[in-house]
Amino acid sequence: MTIYLTELDMTSIEFPSPFDALDEPNGLLAFGGDLSPSRILNAYSQGIFPWYGPGEPILWWSPAPRAVFNPKTFVPSKSLKKCQKKHRYRVSINQATDRVIGYCSSLRPEQETWLNSDMQSAYRKLASLGFCHSVEVWQDDELIGGLYGLQRGLVFCGESMFSLKSNASKIALWYFCDHFTKFGGKLIDCQVMNPHLESLGAVEIERDEFLSSLQLLKETPIDDACFEKQWLEEMP
């Protein structure tokens, strides 16, 4: 059977239904279009995200099942707590978004990264518009880890994380889960499961469950104070 993939119209930001995504490769839905803020925000509001490699057109995905965190139930490991108690790393929100995005790209082999210059520019633009946010981990004045993603209502769509020192990205996630929960955040999307995410406690849910939750939670605004530039309190 011949399967035809949808090519996006440059004059419209509309997408086909996520339920039309291919089974193989898992979740591939469409190609083309651009990385304009309006298109990306519309995509994330429907559980769709861009991901493509060198030499490929822009590819849009909605995989099944979906990997997610429940920030309220995130439990740091004993070793992670021990690490933070020893080093007392500081954690911040939106203090160095450009640098976090840059590290997430530069620390991956060139042939493996999807975070090319166009993608970096797109998410930096979204950050300037107040939709893309970062969490940073610091040792004194040195940025040693972090993560970034897009916020849609009470859902945070995680994009990437990095560590220059052991456990730094895990500490970013731990502190962010606590902070996000305090402001009513309900769900962290991490797209596709991998061993690292699984080790941190991510779970997989079916596409229809994820999309139903997204449609409900994206309509509820979160307090602007959640993503103001700030330092997060040290965990007890």
Rank of each mutant, 00 (worst) to 15 (best):
L29R: 01
C104F: 07
S12H: 13
L107K: 14
P71M: 04
F156C: 03
G146Y: 07
I3Y: 15
G149A: 05
D140N: 15
L200P: 03
V135R: 03
P25A: 01
S106I: 13
A64Q: 10
E24F: 10
P221W: 08
K82A: 09
T6D: 10
P221S: 04
W174V: 05
P18I: 05
L216A: 04
M193R: 01
I93P: 02
T181Q: 03
A30Q: 02
V91T: 04
E228K: 14
E136T: 12
N167A: 07
D208P: 02
I3K: 14
S166M: 13
T97E: 02
H196G: 02
A21D: 06
M1N: 11
S79H: 09
I40L: 10
Y103E: 07
G32K: 07
W60I: 04
G102C: 11
W61A: 00
L214C: 08
F19Y: 12
R39C: 01
E142Q: 14
I40N: 00
P195T: 03
L217H: 06
S17E: 06
I144N: 08
N26E: 03
A168G: 04
L126W: 04
C104Y: 05
V91A: 04
D178Y: 12
I3R: 14
I222W: 11
P16Q: 01
Q191Y: 01
G130F: 12
D178I: 14
R152G: 06
R152Q: 15
C132K: 06
D178K: 15
L115T: 00
K82R: 15
K165S: 10
R152T: 14
D23T: 12
H179Y: 02
E219V: 10
D98F: 14
V75K: 15
F19H: 08
C83K: 14
V135A: 09
P71T: 01
L147T: 05
D224K: 12
E110K: 15
L41R: 13
K81W: 10
T181S: 08
A64K: 12
Q46T: 10
N26K: 12
F210M: 03
K85F: 13
S169Y: 13
E219A: 14
